[in-house]
Design a protein around this nucleic acid. Structure first.
Length: 522
RNA sequence: GGUCCGUUCAUCUAAGGGUUAGGAUUCAAGAUUUUCAUUCUUGCCAUAGGGGUUCGAAUCCCCUACGGACUACCA
């Protein structure tokens, strides 16, 4: 007979202040999947005027990466995702770093042992490895569960009735959850609806480790969410399989009425097909998976982030928000406040979303266009500094206005505007081949004379002069302009040519024509 | 292998039983631009397959296929 466990009551949340958390482990840089999880938590909290906390889950001492926590904090700040409580800020439930909460967890683990919901186990890692291997050899998987727990080295095994002695003698032990047998756990996920799992398919997870005297994720997570009065747990779908355990932990502690509501987010998938997006995919697929650049302290590897690519954080966030969620309207461009207003968990999709860099690029282009010329100038002026070029901000802003619509990334500035600051260093072979006709040198010599006669060297008069010249000489405007463009830009792109000439001035314009005439030989 | 989750254009998605299945990105064509980009217009492209339920199914149910996650003293 299957016993049925009903858990979660939606009414319990009424009238309570929303409290959500983002709880990453500092095992490396945060990748965009994690950023999206943080973002959804943030939007949810903001929408309901709730609290949003940052908790660092550093219970795995082996995987700790120095600098990762700072990276997480910096990245979220860059994205505009702000916390109301947590690491770096403090709050009523401090500390917010689990390694600093060490003392709390053992008490709860022992409480579970006392209530008969957990037990001690003395198996060593080697013994467990061997068990797994021997089962594997038989084509079966080893599961630490109700079938074996009374036969292995556990306090449930009559042969280990002396377990208290062993503990006193200093024999290493762990505490495992005593998973009930054959009970259906009914869970309610805010995104997926009802999920039912039979406990017999589950194993006796370790709650408290012997290796470092720290709890595992499951214990730490549940007790902290409880102690910190979390109302909604919004996390990645990879946690859905352990939801029954978590729910059962709440039940075993007697915290059912305080249990948060759960929402498991769909995963971010690789753009080329298989599997969830991982940290290594960035290099392989040619786009960043980290918000900011990451200098790996161990490998000394430098990994590029969205900031290095010249993304605006607002564009990045807007794009990320729409990956797995949509407002149900046709609006696509949202600032972070609009996102919060529109956000709702029931609009989050169930299926994983493939990451599409082209669309991210489109969003960034849209956001760059929204910038004023002055704002854009301030964002890109450092590239001029690096090149040792001095220039007035107002002048730079004007140039930004000329090239803005050609920029998809902040980094596109120089490639689209270098010719305003220096003469071309070379000539694009394709363009020369196509636009530098046999008669071009003749035409340019003539037009040079005309240009040098212009007294007010500004776009309109340059334009008029060129038109008159073309008419008088009965030559092709296209041929002349394209050749002039090669002189001025070195290639076949860029803003209106007379404008470029005006900006660089008469002297420089004439110099560039001469230079091209000297350097381009057919 | 087991457990759970999922499946609408190439991609992100809308359509809470009744629409010519909508939008956006990509792509293609055209217009604009003396160049390139932008912009504008147009176009191409989807309900995984099979069974039900129903007057009527992308939508509800079942099966199959495919994809994904999890299956550590990691989180």
């Amino acid at each position: 007979m299957i016993q049925i466990i009903f858990v979660q009551n939606f009414n319990t949340m009424e009238g309570k202040k929303v409290r959500v958390r983002f709880a990453p482990s500092p095992t490396g840089p945060l990748h965009i999947g994690g950023v999206r999880t943080a973002l959804y938590n943030y939007l949810f909290a903001k929408k309901y005027d709730g609290d949003f906390l940052l908790r660092i889950e550093d219970t795995d001492s082996n995987r700790f990466v120095p600098g990762a926590e700072e990276y997480i904090v910096d990245s979220l700040r860059w994205c505009g995702i702000e916390f109301t409580e947590g690491v770096g800020i403090g709050g009523p439930h401090a500390p917010y770093r689990q390694s600093e909460r060490k003392d709390i967890y053992l008490k709860y683990a022992l409480q579970l042992v006392e209530s008969g919901n957990a037990y001690y186990a003395f198996d060593t890692s080697e013994e467990l490895d061997n068990l797994r291997k021997s089962q594997e050899a038989k084509g079966m998987a080893f599961t630490y569960n109700y079938e074996v727990r009374t036969r292995l080295k556990t306090s449930l095994n009559p042969e280990y009735a002396d377990y208290q002695e062993r503990i006193k003698k200093g024999e290493p032990w762990v505490i495992r959850f005593k998973m009930p047998v054959n009970q259906n756990v009914h869970m309610n996920d805010l995104i997926r609806g009802e999920v039912i799992v039979n406990t017999s398919a589950l194993d006796d997870k370790v709650l408290f480790k012997s290796a470092d005297g720290l709890p595992t994720y499951h214990l730490a997570n549940v007790t902290d969410d409880y102690l910190m009065r979390i109302t909604h747990v919004i996390r990645g779908e990879e946690w859905l399989p352990s939801l029954p355990l978590h729910v059962l932990l709440y039940k075993s502690f007697g915290w059912e009425s305080k249990m948060p509501l759960f929402a498991h987010l769909p995963l971010l998938l690789k753009p080329d097909g298989k599997g969830k997006l991982s940290k290594r995919d960035g290099d392989r697929l040619g786009f960043p998976v980290f918000p900011k650049h990451w200098d790996d302290p161990a490998t000394k590897e430098l990994v590029k982030g969205y900031d290095d690519y010249g993304f605006l954080p607002q564009a990045f966030i807007n794009f990320l928000a729409l990956l797995g969620w949509n407002p149900g309207t046709e609006q696509e461009i949202f600032n972070i406040n609009e996102l919060a207003d529109a956000f709702s968990l029931d609009k989050v999709s169930k299926a994983g979303a493939k990451f599409d860099f082209e669309k991210a690029k489109w969003f960034n282009h849209q956001y760059i266009q929204k910038l004023t010329n002055k704002q854009l100038a301030e964002m890109i002026c450092s590239v001029l500094d690096e090149k040792g070029i001095k220039c007035e901000m107002s002048y730079l802003a004007d140039i930004c206005g000329l090239v803005k619509e050609r920029m998809f990334f902040l980094n596109d500035f120089w490639a689209n505007a270098y010719f305003f600051f220096q003469s071309p260093e070379g000539y694009d072979a394709e363009a020369v081949k196509k636009r530098w006709k046999d008669n071009v040198p003749e035409l340019l010599k003539d037009v040079k004379a005309v240009l040098s006669d212009i007294s007010h060297f500004e776009a309109n008069s340059i334009n008029d002069t060129l038109h008159h010249h073309v008419e008088a000489k009965q030559i092709s405007m296209g041929v002349l302009m394209n050749a002039l463009r090669i002189c001025m830009v070195g290639a076949s792109f860029g803003p209106d040519l007379p404008l470029i000439m005006e900006v660089v001035g008469k002297e420089e314009t004439l110099r560039r024509i001469d230079k091209a005439l000297n350097e381009i030989k057919l």
